[in-house]
């Protein structure tokens, strides 16, 4: 019966409650926690706000997106990719063409389009956009790619609900384990 007695001990050892702690650091304030900009594909962490494609179209010029990416996301200068895919609905998301990583079309979730603009654009002037402006620009890019209707209002509650053209056609990263090959049966 010795083994039965060991079980609870093993459970205790595996419990993070027993992990050594040092009492270092301090609790973040609510304001600090709110500054985090990481958002989940289901929309957890999205800032309150809203915007439409029409508002986005104005901002697209005002915030100089048009200078790099071209009118309606086509034929931009510098190395900026097209933001409007060459082919529209009815064509597989992987084959619509466009430029760059094809984020407005190939993103599995609309939250990713929002996140990319908020973190990385406008290039050279990152971080200047308010949440409303990011919602509007996201709506604009999704509308010119015919993913949402022109008049849809995007906000923190419906952004993650948008059905993106890629659907389920993308590969999930497999579970990672230490000392395991990268791919079962692949010897290299």
């Amino acid at each position: 019966m010795g083994s039965l007695r060991i079980v609870p001990i093993l459970l205790l050892l595996a419990s993070p409650a027993l992990a050594q702690t040092y009492g270092l650091g301090r609790a973040p304030t609510a304001a600090e926690l709110a500054q985090g900009i990481t958002i989940s594909p289901t929309g957890v962490g999205l800032p309150p706000g809203h915007g439409t494609a029409a508002e986005g179209a104005v901002l697209y010029t005002q915030k100089l997106c048009v200078v790099c990416h071209g009118p309606a996301g086509v034929g931009g200068v510098t190395k900026a990719p097209n933001l409007q895919a060459k082919k529209g609905p009815g064509v597989d998301a992987w084959d619509r063409g466009g430029g760059g990583d094809g984020i407005p079309v190939k993103a599995p979730d609309a939250t990713i389009v929002f996140d990319f603009i908020r973190r990385g654009m406008p290039l050279g002037n990152e971080g200047i956009l308010t949440p409303d402006e990011v919602y509007s620009l996201t709506a604009y890019l999704l509308a010119i790619n015919k993913i949402i209707p022109e008049d849809e209002v995007l906000d923190q509650n419906n952004l993650a609900q948008i059905k993106m053209p890629i659907g389920n056609e993308w590969a999930r990263v497999p579970d990672w384990k230490p000392r395991a090959p990268r791919l079962a049966g692949y010897p290299y």
Binding site: T38, I39, S40, P41, T42, D101, I103, K106, A107, P108, D109, T111, I112, D115, F116, R119, G120, W170, R172, V173
Partner: peptide, 12 residues
């Protein structure tokens, strides 16, 4: 949940 962030997009 796995989330595709700024730097993860290249892994799509």
């Amino acid at each position: 949940q796995y989330q595709l962030n700024m730097n993860d997009f290249g892994h799509l």
